[in-house]
Amino acid sequence: MTVIARSSRRARARRARVGTWVLLILIGIVFAAPLLFLIVGAFKPGTLVLTEASSWRAFWPSHASLNNFATAITRSQLFTLLLNTIIVTGTIVLSGLVINSLIGYALARFRFRGRRFLLLLIVALAVVPFQAIAIPTLLEMSQWGLRNTYPGLILPMIANAFYIYLFYSFFLAMPVELEEAARVDGAGPLRVFRSIAVPLAGPAFATVAILSFMSSWGELLWPSLMTDDITVRTIQLGISVIRSSPPINQGVVLASVLLAALPVMVVFIVLQRRFIESAARSGIK
């Protein structure tokens, strides 16, 4: 290999690196601009949000204040809604992690009659969107008097065919040697699952945690059917009231949206590294 070839390769690598940076920055602007617009707009008077939206001023916090946040909080009792959402989402995510990983593990590791049928069933059910079955589910829940209760909001969302499938494929791809060794040492199935499989499956748990946190945090339809009582309503309903009932103030809309999005952003940033790493080893590929 000659010196010239090496230096030209280095030049090419440098050009590629510059190209990568240019692309990253251009695409980065496309992704960052609307987010910046959201953050800046939340601090601006409502009328300016719209009238300044068509120029660079859209990203400039003119007349910045916290008024929008104050209005958003008082108008929709945002803190009550936020607390409800945390309770509902937290329960769904935590119990969902346990229940969905158990069955996913069993499907991947145990041989039993009906296993194939069960897998087929779960794949088929993963296609059914919740909107499609919300009405019959509402009738069921009403029958049991679970409207306006936390269980009514939580129970139908815990078991999820798609998350089960993710756990199943993750455990399937995981080496079994450690678990076998533990079993030989006399550990029962639950013990093996808890102390060997779960710690190794951290990334899968992170992935499902993020996905289920996001979807239940953003759920709009189900709480709107299931609740009319502020004591159990969730944050998305508060936002939709602010967004649709006059007088509409776009600054307040953006502020409430930002307040509602903050917890999700925090959870994501905390779990982010594991999430990306997770996918690398999980069945989603």
Binding site: L139, R147, M226, V241
Partner: peptide
């Protein structure tokens, strides 16, 4: 009680006799 989305609430409440 002040109801934010009356139509949805009436439907849901009627179905569950609330």
């Amino acid at each position: 009680k002040v109801i934010p989305d009356m139509t949805a609430s009436v439907k849901g409440a009627a179905a569950s006799k609330q």
